[in-house]
Amino acid sequence: MHIKVNGKPVELEYEMTVGEFVQDRALKGMFAIEKNLKIINKEDYSTELLQEGDSIEIVGFVGGG
């Protein structure tokens, strides 16, 4: 299955939820996930399924001042 992550093509070996994608990539720190230009609430990570052609943006927040 092919999706785009931050504009770059990525191949996923199997169908997964946004939550599994986050785990798979070991994403840490402060971030939000935008799927097809819509922010996915953290509560919906475990049910939101990634599909062929989806475009994912990992939006990182920084904490310095």
Partner: peptide, 15 residues
């Protein structure tokens, strides 16, 4: 709303 209840420490090295 944006980041959930995640409040883990982040490292800041400068700017």
């Amino acid at each position: 709303c944006v980041l959930g209840d995640n409040s883990e420490e982040t490292e800041n090295s400068g700017v």
